[in-house]
Simulated scan of single mutants.
Amino acid sequence: MTQARPLSLITGASAGIGSAFARALAAQGHDVVLTARRTDRLESLAAELRASHGIQATVLTSDLADPHAAEQLCATLDQRGLKVDWLINNAGYGVPGRFEASDWATHADFLRVLVTAPTELAWRLIGSMRERGYGRIVNVASLAGHVPGSAGHTLYAASKAYMIKFSQSLALENQTTGIHVCALCPGFTRSEFHDVTGTRPLVNKMPGFMWQSAEDVVQEGIKAVERGDAVYVTGRFNRTVKSVFKLMPDKMALRMSAKQSRRYRTQD
C-alpha cells in the first residue's frame, strides 16, 4: 500500500507538546497516529484533526511503561499497513522527591517510558525508514539534559541526557540515508507537566520570560529536524543558559544548579 500522505507517530499525544506536534503536523498534511494512556483525550484530538485538516487520525491507546508496549504498537502498525515517516518520541513525566522516596517499580516504569520505549520505537521503525530513504525522528529531551543534575526528580535529567547522546549517535549513523534525528531540548514549557508532578506552585514563581508555549517549541523543533540539527535547544533564554553552564567550572555549575533547583524541584 502506498501512503498518499506522510504518517507521523506521536507518543504522549494527549496533551502539551505531544498534542501540539499532532496539530502542527496535521496542518502540514500529515496523517497521524496518536498514542497515550487517555483514550478520551486522544479520540477528541483525532476528531478535531480530521475535521480541521481532512487527514487520517488513528488512535492507539498504550501505556509505554508496559515492557511490551513498543513491540505491540509497531505490530499494530504493520497489521494496518501503516509506515511511519515521522516518529515523535514525546511521552514523559517526572517523579518528584528524593530517589529513595519512591519504590523501585515507580522508577522502573519511568525508565521504560522515558528511555527504553523511545529507544525501542526508533529501533523498530528506522529500518523501514532506511528502506524508503526518508524519515524524521524527534526525541523530546530537555534543557535539563545539558545542565548539572538537581536534587529531587533524580532520574529526569539523566534520562534526557541519554536521549541527547542517543540522538547524536543515531543522527551520525544516518547522515546519508535521508533520515534526520533531532533531540529537541525545551526549557520551561506551558503544559500539564508541572501539575502532574505537583510543582505548579513552585514554577508559577518563575518569571514569564523563562517560559515558552508548546506551540512555539514544536515549530522550532520541526524546523530543526528538517535542517538536520542533531540537537536543538529551543528559545533564546534556554540557549543562553546552556552556554553559561557549559563555560562554568564543574563545581561552580553544580552549586548553581543546587541553588536554582530548589525553586522548581520537589526534593523531599
Rank of each mutant, 00 (worst) to 15 (best):
D250C: 08
T2E: 11
L73T: 05
G127H: 12
Y232T: 01
V140Y: 03
I137K: 00
L25P: 00
P201V: 02
L155M: 15
G16Q: 06
P148V: 01
M256F: 13
G208H: 13
E43G: 09
T58Y: 13
G29F: 12
W211G: 05
A158T: 15
A46V: 13
S261P: 04
T199C: 04
V181E: 06
E192T: 11
L73M: 09
G228E: 02
L247T: 14
N89W: 04
A51N: 14
A46L: 10
K242V: 10
R50E: 15
H68W: 07
A4G: 08
C74T: 15
M252I: 14
L73I: 12
Y162D: 04
V233E: 02
A214V: 05
S62D: 10
G178Q: 03
R132Q: 11
I164M: 10
Q260L: 15
L121P: 10
R124F: 08
A26K: 01
T35P: 04
Y134R: 09
Y93I: 00
E71K: 08
R265Q: 15
G127P: 08
S44G: 10
H53E: 09
L114Y: 02
C185L: 02
D195N: 13
P118N: 13
G152E: 08
A253W: 03
T11F: 02
T11W: 00
E43A: 13
T266I: 15
S44W: 01
P207F: 10
G208A: 15
F245A: 07
F188C: 05
V244F: 09
L155R: 03
T240K: 07
A91Y: 00
K259D: 12
R136M: 00
L49W: 10
H146V: 01
W211S: 09
T39M: 09
K165Y: 07
K251F: 15
F21Q: 02
G152P: 05
E43I: 12
Q72P: 06
V95R: 06
L42K: 08
Q260N: 06
E131C: 06
H68F: 07
A57E: 06
G152M: 09
G135N: 00
R5V: 07
G127N: 13
A161W: 04
L170G: 02
T35N: 02
